[in-house]
Design a protein around this nucleic acid. Structure first.
Lengths: 343, 343
DNA sequence: TTGAAAGCGCTAACAA
DNA sequence: TTGTTAGCGCTTTCAA
C-alpha cells in the first residue's frame, strides 16, 4: 500500500494525498474526507523512509553512551528520550560499552543514516577518529552534543557538571567533620570528570593545609573491579584513611564491596563520599554521603541543546555552548563524621 | 556527495560503484581500487536511507519498554543491543513510560519507519490497540517479540520467566525457614508476571497448608510508592507478617524504604524475599534474599528470537515460540530465617 | 484546488 | 566485467 494506491482509490493525484496527509497546501474539505476514508479503511501508514529520502531529513538522533546499565546513563537516556518525544524525534540507541571500535562503527552508522544529530559520551577524550568525525558532522550541519566527557580542542557543545566545585565542597565537608586522612579513588585522568573530580579533592585538601600522601590517590577507571582493588590497597596502608572520596557510582560500589566484605561499617568505621547518588541505597537509608546530580536534567538539556542547534551549519566560529550544571551535596548520617568536627 | 558523484569522478557507472561497495557482482580489481580511492578521498558515506528505500529493508528494530531507568529493563536493553550489534542491526529506542498513549504512538513509528521487527514489553496486556497492531505487524512479515509481559490470545513469540516455579520455591524456602506469617506485595494482576508470581506464592502457602489472611495479599503496581503503602498497611496489622514476598525490584525498594524508615532491620526484624536482584544491594552484602534472573540473557534471547523469525510471514499457524527462562533463588544471610526452621 | 512530473540516492534486472 | 534504466515511495515545483 503506497501513496499511489491511495491516490488511485480516491481518484486524485499523489500530490493531493501528500498535501492532505502533511497538511501542506490546499485540499478541499470534501477531497480530504474521501482521502482519509480510504486511508483509514486500508490502514495505510506512509513510508517514513521514503519521506526522509525525499525531504532529506530523518527526525532521528543518535545517542552513543558507554553503558546503559549504569544508573547515570540510563537516567540521562530517560531525559533525552523525554525531550526527543516532545519534539517528534526518535532515538537510535548505540551502546559503545566503552569500546572504541564500537564507537567508531556507530559514528559510521550515524553518518550513513543521515541522522539529524548525535549525543555522545565518548569513550576516550583523546581519540582522533571520533574527534574528526564529530567535527565533520558539525561541518555538515549535524547537531553534536557531548555529555559529561569532553573532546578537548573541538569546541563542540556539551552538557557537563560542575565537578571541581562539587568535589571540593564535598571533601571540604569531610574535613570540617574532622577527617584529615582522606583518600580518593579517582577516575581516568584523561577524562574531564576524572580529572576535575580529582582536582576538586586536591584543592580541598590543600586549601585546608592537609598533606596528601601519594598513596592516598589511587587510580580507578570508573568501574567496580578496579575500585575494589583500590579500596583494598588503601585499607592495607600503615595509616589507612578515615574517609574516602570515590569518583563515580561504580567506584563507590566497588569500594563499598571491599569494605563490607571486610566487615567495615560505613559511617562508623570509615566515611565514604561518593560522586553520584545510588538509587537503591537511598531507599534503605544507607549512610553514604554523596554528590548528587539531576541526571534526567542532564539528558533533557543535552537534547534541548541538540534541537537548538539543528541546521546551524552556517554560523561559523560560534562560541561553544557549554552548559555546566551544578551538583548537590547530600550528607547522610555518618554520625562519626559530624561529631568529630565538634569534639 | 552521492553515488553518482563517485561514479563520475571514477569514470564508471553507479551500478559499478554500487557493486563495489556492496561486494555484490563482479568488479575488476583495478576498478575497485580506483573507486575506493575516490570514496576515501572524498570521505563518501553511502546514504542508508536511500538504500533502505531501494531494497525495502531497514536493518533496524524497535524496542518499546516501559522504563529504562529500571535496572531490569536497562539490562535487558543491554542484552538486546549486544546481539543486535553482532548481527548488524540497529535499535530504535522507544520508552513508553507505562503510558498507553506513548506506546501507541511508538507503534505507529515502528510501522512508518518500516522497521524489521519490534521487541516490546507492553504497558497493558489487555489493550486492544496494541494487540491489533502487533498482529498486523506479524501478518506483514515483521518480527514481533514480547518480553516478560504477555498479550493473551495473540500467539506472539516471547521471552518470559518461570515466575510460578520461582515464586513457589522461594516462598517455600521462607516456610522451611520457619515463617508462617508470610505476606506479599503483588504486581498488577492483569499482567503475566504479576499474576504468576502471586500464584506461586499462593501455591507455596497452600501446599504447606498455611492459611493466607486476605490482608496478607496487598496489591502493588510494580512501583515504589505503592509498595511503600502496602508495606505500611502490612506492618500495621494486628498480626503483622514475619516475612514479605515482594514481586519486583521496585516493589522491594518501596517496601525496604518503609521498613528502614521505621527502624526495622531486614533479616532480623523481618525477612524479605524479592523478585529480581538489586545490583547495589549486592555490593554491600545486604541481607536480602532474592529470586534472580539473567536479565542480559533475556534481552539476548529476545533479539535472537526476533532475528530468527524475520521474514517468516508465510509460515501460517506456526506454533508460538515462547522461551521461558529459569530463575535462581539467592538466599542471603537473614539468620533469623534459617534458625527458625531448626528451633 | 488539483495534477503532471522531476527528483531524493540507491539497487538490480537486463543487456551488452 | 560494466552500463542502462527502471524503479523504491514520497515531496514539491510549476502550470493549469
Amino acid at each position: 500500500m503506497t501513496i499511489q494506491d491511495i491516490a488511485n482509490l480516491t481518484g486524485v493525484s499523489t500530490a493531493t494525498v501528500s498535501r492532505a496527509i502533511n497538511k501542506t497546501g490546499y485540499v478541499k474539505e470534501e477531497t480530504r474526507r474521501r482521502i482519509f476514508e480510504v486511508i483509514d479503511k486500508h490502514k495505510y501508514v506512509p513510508n517514513a523512509v521514503a519521506r526522509s529520502l525525499s525531504i532529506n531529513d530523518t527526525s532521528c538522533v543518535g545517542v552513543i553512551i558507554p553503558d546503559i546499565e549504569n544508573e547515570f546513563f540510563s537516567k540521562v537516556m530517560s531525559g533525552i528520550a523525554e525531550v526527543a518525544e516532545e519534539n517528534g524525534y526518535h532515538i537510535l540507541f548505540l551502546g559503545s560499552n566503552e569500546s572504541l571500535k564500537r564507537e567508531h562503527s556507530f559514528l559510521n552508522i550515524v553518518e550513513a543514516q543521515r541522522l539529524a544529530g548525535v549525543i555522545i559520551t565518548p569513550v576516550s577524550e583523546e581519540d582522533v577518529f571520533t574527534k574528526d568525525r564529530l567535527l565533520r558532522f558539525k561541518q555538515r550541519g549535524m547537531s553534536v552534543v557531548l555529555v559529561d566527557r569532553d573532546v578537548p580542542g573541538s569546541n563542540i557543545d556539551g552538557v557537563f557538571s560542575d565537578n571541581v566545585t562539587a568535589a571540593r565542597d564535598g571533601v571540604s565537608k569531610l574535613i570540617e567533620a574532622g577527617h584529615t586522612k582522606i583518600a580518593t579513588i579517582s577516575g581516568p585522568e584523561t577524562s574531564k570528570p576524572g580529572k576535575e573530580r580529582l582536582l576538586g579533592y586536591i584543592q580541598a585538601m590543600e586549601g585546608a593545609g592537609l598533606y596528601i600522601p601519594p598513596q592516598y590517590v589511587t587510580h580507578g577507571d570508573f568501574r567496580k573491579q578496579r575500585a575494589f582493588e583500590c579500596a583494598k590497597s588503601l585499607l592495607s596502608l600503615n595509616e589507612p584513611p578515615t574517609a574516602i572520596f570515590t569518583s563515580n557510582n561504580l567506584t563507590t560500589l566497588g569500594c563499598l564491596e571491599y569494605l563490607t566484605s571486610n566487615k567495615m561499617k560505613i559511617g562508623r568505621d570509615i566515611s565514604i563520599l561518593g560522586f553520584d547518588d545510588i538509587e537503591a541505597l537511598k531507599a534503605i537509608n544507607y549512610k553514604l554521603s554523596v554528590i548528587d546530580r539531576d541526571m534526567n536534567q542532564i539528558g533533557r538539556e543535552a537534547m534541548r541543546l541538540l534541537l537548538k542547534n539543528l541546521n546551524k551549519r552556517h554560523v561559523k566560529n560560534r562560541e561553544r555552548e557549554s552548559i555546566v550544571l551544578p551538583c548537590t551535596l547530600i550528607l547522610r548520617g555518618a554520625k562519626k563524621m559530624r561529631l568529630k568536627g565538634r569534639s
